[in-house]
Nucleic acid binder design. Structure first.
Length: 320
DNA sequence: CGATTTTGACCGGCGC
DNA sequence: GCGCCGGTCAAAATCG
């Protein structure tokens, strides 16, 4: 029962970096900065961080509204991605200042030249457009806040509890991997997400959510697991809210449609006997995320154990 | 048969 | 104005 996921929390420059690691799935949360001691990428600035890389230049205060998670100041500063992957892949700063990922905005943090953090590839891709596009968010159409997840997974489309409909796919410049565009199938819900595989590290999938769900997850009865999060207001409509309580059952129901590679079955991130590694990945990611950000104590970061148990069906957690 | 995926065309923004 | 590029549309194909 102990094999859930390994959460890594590392600090560089006082920046908490963390990522969740499962046997086969790992997620990083480069985003989330601002408020509560975080630094959110300022849309006006040249975001130096991951968000920017991901095209988060549009991150605006609105995001803060969406992401209202009480985060311990201590952990706040830079959310950095830490991965087991080779540095080159995710650009993980092994050094204290390396940072990366998301140091964005405010003050010196973003000024950091950032050692290219997250993914070179992403960096390349997104960066270009970012820089090219200063900020037009004000006048022209404004985008919904985006939220990105970097997940180490074998499958591209991570199941997150919501139903998505693919509406496009484009080749990514400088990358052999295409980017897929999905839209929430729920009527009236305008949430979209982009999924692309890291060029630098094919094992990493970058999922970017845009907008907020205006409805509960179609696959989950009720978000009771959101406990603390609810207080923060983060639970109900976060665009990236990935209810995964029933995610697995959902997955089972729909896996047929979730183009699952054969090998998926062999990958049970948490040792779950599920074939939906994607599901697990997303679930874990989210859980980790929530746990981390919603908990007010820093210690929580290191205590994710109970998390899955609470959120994930016992059979899932059942290590085997 | 309805829902979803595929995929080329189209659109708008931006740099040159 | 032109071309590039990211993002979206929509008809056709596919799936269950």
């Amino acid at each position: 029962m102990e094999r859930r996921e390994v959460v890594k929390v590392e600090k560089f420059d006082g920046s908490p970096a963390f990522s969740t690691t499962n046997d086969h799935v790992q997620t990083s949360y480069p985003f989330m900065q601002g408020q509560h001691g975080f630094d959110l990428v300022d849309g006006d600035k040249n975001a130096l961080g991951f968000m920017e890389l991901l095209g988060m230049q549009d991150f605006s205060p609105s995001l803060l509204d969406m992401i209202q998670v009480p985060i311990p100041p201590a952990q706040a500063p830079n959310v950095q991605v830490v991965t087991e992957s080779p540095p080159e892949l995710l650009n993980q700063p092994a050094t204290p200042n390396s940072s990366s990922i998301s140091s964005a905005s405010s003050e010196g943090l973003n000024d950091e030249p950032v050692n290219k953090s997250v993914d070179d590839e992403v960096e390349e891709q997104e960066k270009n457009k970012k820089e090219l596009k200063p900020k037009k968010t004000n006048q022209k159409r404004q985008r919904e806040p985006r939220f990105a997840f970097m997940t180490k997974s074998e499958v591209d489309h991570l199941e997150d509890g919501y139903r998505w409909r693919k509406y496009g796919q484009k080749a990514v410049k400088n990358s052999p991997f295409p980017r897929s565009y999905y839209r929430c199938t729920t009527a009236s819900c305008i949430v979209k997400k982009r999924v692309e595989r890291s060029f630098s590290d094919p094992s990493v999938v970058v999922t970017t959510y845009e907008g907020q769900h205006t409805h509960p997850s179609p696959v989950m009865p009720r978000p009771n697991f959101i406990g603390p999060a609810s207080d923060s207001g983060f639970s109900s409509t976060a665009a990236f809210a990935m209810p995964m309580q029933r995610r697995l059952s959902f997955y089972q129901q729909h896996q047929s449609r979730q183009q699952q590679p054969p090998f998926v079955n062999s990958f049970s991130p948490l040792g779950f006997g599920y074939n939906g590694s994607t599901t697990n990945a997303a679930a874990i990611n989210y859980l980790q995320y929530e746990k981390r950000f919603c908990s007010s104590s820093g210690s929580t970061l290191l205590k994710d154990h109970g998390l899955l148990q609470d959120l994930v069906p016992s059979h899932m957690l059942k290590e085997e």
